[in-house]
Design a protein around this nucleic acid. Structure first.
Lengths: 357, 357
DNA sequence: TATATTTTCGTGTACGTACCCGAATTTACT
DNA sequence: AGTAAATTCGGGTACGTACACGAAAATATA
């Protein structure tokens, strides 16, 4: 029965009435399915455009039994770095919100010290059929290879925590590394007198090669600030290639043997707690200490006035917003900004209790 | 026809089958409507409990044509204080997200300098029938009277920006005023030597009586920090009761005539830009300046190094989360925490570009 | 021209819930 | 007991969309 009454209808029914076809035909056009002549298809399309038709998501997801599968590909939260717990928490929060709208989220965790585990997970992920991907592209080359596959299979993907520009990701949620180093230096400007004798120690602690470029970008930002503002402080830098405390202690001992007048220490990542432990044990807590990330150990030292400031970049929000970006794109067709830098938050002893990681 | 097949059904159908009644009867029980005998009602209720039945929100909002009306009762964003633009932005964002689920949000703006305009709006609000309220309870007594009406009418309400404890609000999203003053003092600890001669000026600028208690709480937090940590700095305090620049200038002139050695100024609200203008015009920019809120004028002075730090408390998020709390409560039956303090964010020249207000 | 094939399209049912309307049952009242 | 009234309940349709199935129309093939 063709719908011909004049009563104002809504949605597909109204389109069907105006085009003098059945609802099913309108549906075919909406979903780009075949079986519609070009003539009627164009007619329907023009009516859709004219009405600025917005499908009712409620009815759609209710009627459509199929569920969208999103995949999450991030490092597992080891006890070595609890960092990745936060993005996962954000992801779970998003999942809780949208699972009732037919979204399923499968998690694939890899070992961030092991490239091959990453590759293995990408293969498994492609084998299971998924409709969208949220990933941390830690290993550059492997990630590029993987996203090329995704492009071929027409699977959209979102990056978090670190970006691969020019890889056509749907979007990126994460820090501007350079600027966060710059911010750290800015804090020190207030805290350390502008004299050469007030030395500043820059510490990179990292075992994984893949993380090096992160640290390098922060280091670059940090140093640039001192140049841009003609700061006179001498900057000493050390790279610690082992993350155990003994290694850190050894290196620090060496530095302090050479330099007596270090006013501040800037640790370029979340390993700042190791340095905190050192300066606490060696009664050097008068030295200013700045580091990264809202991790339990770090907060402990923050409470005890050993760490003075932590710079944080909302890891949880990275996961949450990444998933929601996928959801908004695939379900509502809304695309968001391509690059989304997280705020650069400054945490101290007096506001950490209020921080939302 | 009673549903008797053994095939596993979902939702109300399954309940109806097990209880050997019709769907309509189950529906009556679910909505606490009358017309069901106590016996069958109990039977159905026990089955609902047993199955841990969760209604399908999609189907519910689709089938139910009625739309929920939320009311927002906040100050209008005057050019005197652009502050309230931010909560409104958050509210609009939430509206955009949930309007497709049958939520309508009506806005009622009052003049924060005029109690009677507040009362007028509350009356209008109660006249229009609304299902939930998000409000800024700026005028204590009037707000209490209003929320008593709401309680009587069984309309849930959420507070933002300032709290009225013991008023049985669904929840509160806003700052911990005392702690934000404490935080401001903590920042100064790093920036000003611990000596009596390094004086610190505390400035309250406010015309509205209703805002006074805000400032007082911050002031209390600020001073407490100095006491708690045995800081020796002399603290000078002034209250400026007019918000125009001429008044501020007059008061500041007077203070600087009396004191030559002021190291830092703490302005307890967003009017910090007036003080910034003063110390810029009087070539006193070497004085540290700390204030509140991410407003355009303040950011300008932050860029120019006149203001050193701004403390911000996510006003936009207050509006967003407030609305979502109402929504989650009324649609999904999920209640959130009662008191939700916003983070205490520290904004400086090097991170303001990344701040999400 | 008759039949086979392809293209094009409509009917009908389903998703899970809300709610109108009227029927069946029970209770109250003369 | 007989009727009226109240109580309790079920049938059926609707919300807006998806999709299986089959019918009709157009085209191709013999």
């Amino acid at each position: 029965m063709k719908i011909t009454e004049e009563k104002e209808l809504t949605g597909v029914k109204e389109i069907a009435r105006r085009a003098e076809v059945s609802i099913a035909t309108v549906d075919r056009v909406l979903h780009n399915r075949q079986g519609v002549s070009i003539k009627t298809k164009n007619k329907i399309l023009s009516i859709i455009a004219e009405l600025d038709y917005q499908p009712n998501i409620l009815a759609r997801t209710l009627a459509s039994k199929k569920i969208l599968k999103f995949a999450v590909l991030i490092p597992e939260a080891s006890n070595e770095t609890a960092f990745w717990e936060a993005p996962l928490t954000g992801i779970l929060k998003a999942e809780e919100e949208i699972k009732r709208y037919g979204i399923q989220i499968d998690k694939y965790f890899f070992d961030q010290n092991d490239t091959s585990s990453f590759v293995a997970k990408t293969e498994q992920l492609l084998h299971d059929h998924v409709d969208g991907i949220l990933m941390a592209p830690m290993f550059t080359e492997e990630s590029i290879a993987f996203t090329n596959d995704c492009k071929r299979l027409n699977i959209p993907y979102v990056f978090i925590n670190s970006d691969l520009p020019d890889q056509q990701s749907l979007c990126y949620f994460g820090p501007d590394l350079y600027q966060s180093g710059y911010m750290g230096a800015h804090l020190l400007r207030y805290l350390v007198p502008n004299q050469a004798k007030n030395k500043i120690l820059l510490v990179n602690i990292s075992k994984e090669i893949n993380q090096r470029h992160h640290l390098l970008q922060k280091e670059k930002g940090f140093k640039s600030y001192f140049e841009d503002h003609n700061r006179k402080n001498e900057i000493i830098k050390i790279d610690v290639r082992q993350t155990d405390y003994a290694s850190v202690e050894r290196e620090m001992d060496q530095i302090f043997a050479q330099h007596q007048d270090i006013s501040a220490i800037f640790v370029s990542n979340s390993r700042v707690s190791s340095v905190a432990r050192y300066i606490e044990q060696h009664n050097k807590t008068e030295i200013l200490l700045i580091g990264f990330d809202f991790l339990p150990q770090n907060i402990e030292y923050l409470k005890n006035d050993v760490i003075d400031f932590l710079i944080c970049q909302k890891p949880q929000e990275q996961g949450y917003k990444g998933i929601m970006a996928l959801y908004n794109k695939m379900v509502h067709g809304q695309s968001s900004q391509q690059v989304n830098f997280m705020p650069i938050d400054i945490i101290s002893r007096e506001n950490y209790l209020f921080y939302h990681n």
